[in-house]
């Protein structure tokens, strides 16, 4: 019997291709029949309000969340058809910046960045440390390498997480709400850093965000997810010019020229005030 080999990735193949993907949690359908192809070598922002299913989509890409239906191809591989070892190998071709950074609190900043180099790439310690220091320099944190993550500001922690995500020179970097919890000035600085880094490396960046200003500032392509449905996907200009009422209802919440002007201050929180005891 001849052994079947997986087809080699094609250069033009999208970095991420979702096909008819659905996901339910109990009775609630959080992703409904989503099909999209995210191009390589660009920044794509998946926009949407909270609870629209953005994080679930990112979970499909990393293989942490399994869809109920549909196919997920990442860097030419069918994520959920891979054996465990193949999935781990695919993940080593990705980097990810988590919403709360997910930095290892017991390690110093430089050890956080060196961690994947030591544990995944098995580089010698001096080489890993020198590469980690160079990466920290690139993200503007040259002098803070000996600190612990909890001694850094939110923006500085994002920079450390970015350096760690880039450590293994991934083909694809995922960003979960990269500007969440940051003030407008720091958000703009992180956006500029992402833009500059992607321009320098040419790596595929995918960011999920509800921050329209940030998406406008960084994205080449934009997808809009509302209630688990993909309402728009295309170049930033095309999506921004969309006349779809659902798209307009989301995008028109910020003034024209978003991404060029500083963002308006966030409104005060309007929680219900219920405290679960």
């Amino acid at each position: 019997m001849s052994e079947q080999r997986a087809p080699a990735p094609i250069a033009d193949e999208p970095a991420v291709a979702l096909s008819g993907v659905c996901k339910r949690f109990g009775d609630r359908e959080v992703i409904h029949d989503v099909t999209l192809a995210i191009p390589r070598g660009r920044i794509t922002a998946l926009l949407g309000p909270s609870g629209s299913g953005k994080s679930t989509l990112l979970g499909f890409v990393t293989g942490l969340v399994r869809p109920n239906a549909g196919q997920v191809r990442v860097l030419g591989e069918d994520v959920f058809a891979l054996p465990r070892r193949g999935l781990l190998a695919l993940r080593r071709r990705m980097g990810m910046l988590f919403q709360d950074n997910a930095l290892f609190q017991s390690l110093s900043v430089v050890d956080n960045v060196a961690f994947p180099l030591l544990r995944v790439a098995r580089r010698p310690a001096p080489e890993a440390k020198s590469r980690a220091l160079a990466l920290l320099e690139q993200v503007g944190l040259g002098g803070l390498h000996d600190r612990r993550p909890d001694q850094l500001s939110g923006g500085q922690q994002k920079r450390v997480a970015l350096a760690r995500a880039l450590a293994l020179e991934p083909e694809l970097v995922l960003f979960d709400e990269p500007t969440s919890g940051l003030d407008p000035q720091t958000s703009a600085a992180i956006d500029a850093l992402l833009r500059e880094t992607q321009g320098r490396l040419g790596t595929t960046f995918i960011a999920i965000t509800h921050d329209i200003v940030s998406a406008a500032a960084i994205a080449d392509h934009v997808g809009l997810l509302v209630d688990g449905r993909l309402r728009a996907f295309g170049t930033r200009g095309a999506v921004w010019a969309s006349t779809d009422p659902a798209v307009r209802a989301f995008l028109d919440r910020v003034p024209a020229g978003a991404g060029e002007a500083p963002a308006a201050p966030a409104p005060p929180p309007t929680g219900s005030g219920d405290l679960e005891l």
């Binding site: 990393t62 942490l64 781990l88 190998a89 695919l90 993940r91 080593r92 990705m94 980097g95 990810m96 988590f98 919403q99 709360d100 997910a102 930095l103 290892f104 609190q105 961690f115 994947p116 544990r119 995944v120 293994l168 995922l174």
Partner: peptide, 22 residues
């Protein structure tokens, strides 16, 4: 539990590492 809550275990998985072994 703290590593799970702050998604440090997910970070290990996304790096292609096995949290159970590590």
């Amino acid at each position: 539990a703290t590593m799970k809550a702050t998604r440090q275990t997910d970070a290990l998985e996304v790096m292609g590492l096995d949290p159970l072994r590590l």
